[in-house]
């Protein structure tokens, strides 16, 4: 296990809109080892989904990944792969679950067909055994009566069930990496926990690596090994989960942690919000893009962009001119 399963280096993605160019992902780098989970946390619009889509090159035509970006999957750079080779990775190597389970299943196609598709295409299975396997998969994701569900259409299923189907589809060809883009945001709270437990369970069972995207720091803290905090398209802090929770250096991370509702809080404690607006990524900003909202910002913060630097320990890095003190 000397090399990471997925290694992302200097990933930068631009979105070209009529009004101008948005740099949605800026120079993001991280490594992910087999069986591990990296949590990606950040406010809405900070570029999490674009990051996930960039990894599998699932971007719309008006988005471009810059040349300097490198994505190495399983020891192989996917920069110059043909669409055909990419499709092999997408189906079998790395699978993705999307933010909105309600719209990510094809409404005019039976569930069974949507699950077996990858089996038929990538694994060249026959129709019969593929359907059999689809039933097993649906059972594995906790769907009670798979043989009936197979003949149903998505609109006949509840949101939670649809997300389970999406997970079953993602797992069909036993991928080594699962990218889960806010897998539970659209679901209600009780279903959220069930789905996350299911993902945990499946991950351990299959020894998958996982990228878990969320805007809920609490959720990332208890499910991920490492956490990357994103702000304005950049990773602004990156560390193992406990370390980050115990010892955030970036004021933004600290603010996110404060925003987690705590069980021990007395009832009716107001939720802590982060003051101000997320940055407009259309306008280039000279300094730290969090500076306008940061109470500790000095003029260096406004004029000069802070780089992602290591803490004294080498698994904790952050980009901040005025880091919070270390609590040891």
């Amino acid at each position: 296990m000397s090399i990471p399963l997925l290694s992302v280096k200097h990933l930068t993605t631009d979105i070209h809109l009529e009004q101008g160019k948005v740099r949605a992902v800026r120079d993001v780098s991280f490594d992910l080892w087999q069986g591990k989970t990296i949590g990606i946390v950040g406010e809405s619009g900070c570029g999490k989904s674009i990051l996930c889509k960039s990894i599998l090159k699932l971007l719309p035509a008006y988005a471009h990944i810059l040349e300097k970006s490198q994505i190495i999957f399983n020891g192989r750079s996917i920069n110059n792969l043909t669409e055909k080779e990419l499709n092999k990775i997408r189906g079998q190597g790395a699978a993705m679950i999307f933010q909105d389970p309600l719209s990510s299943l094809n409404p005019v196609m039976k569930i069974g067909h949507q699950v077996t598709e990858t089996l038929l295409y990538h694994l060249k299975m026959e129709e019969e055994p593929a359907l059999k396997k689809a039933e097993d998969l649906l059972k594995a994701v906790g769907i009670a009566n798979p043989s009936q569900r197979i003949d149903q259409y998505p609109h006949q299923l509840s949101g939670g069930l649809r997300q389970r189907v999406a997970i079953a589809i993602a797992l069909a060809c036993e991928p080594k990496l699962l990218i889960a883009d806010e897998p539970t945001t659209a679901l209600d709270v009780t279903v959220q926990a069930e789905i996350l437990d299911l993902l945990d369970h499946l991950q351990i069972q299959r020894n998958m690596a996982m990228i878990l995207v969320t805007h809920d720091f609490g959720l990332a803290a208890c499910r991920a090994d490492e956490i990357a905090v994103m702000y304005g398209g950049k990773i602004v802090e990156y560390a193992p989960a406990e370390k980050l929770l115990a010892n955030p250096r970036m004021p933004y991370t600290k603010a996110l942690i404060n925003a987690i509702p705590r069980l021990e809080d007395p009832p009716h404690t107001p939720l802590q919000f982060i003051e101000g607006q997320p940055p407009n990524m259309m306008i280039p900003y000279a300094g730290c893009c969090f500076a306008p909202r940061c109470s500790l910002a000095g003029h260096q913060c406004r004029d000069q962009e802070p780089l992602l630097i290591n803490d004294d320990t080498d698994d904790h890095s952050f980009a901040c001119w005025n880091p919070l003190g270390k609590i040891s």
Binding site: L86, S103, S104, V108, M109
Partner: peptide, 27 residues
Amino acid sequence: LQENYILMARSKGLPAPYILFRHALQP
């Protein structure tokens, strides 16, 4: 083609002609 389920189909590694004719044509 801007629907989420088309993105999902792409993420499954299915070839473009298949997605166009099997996933997108009927809807």
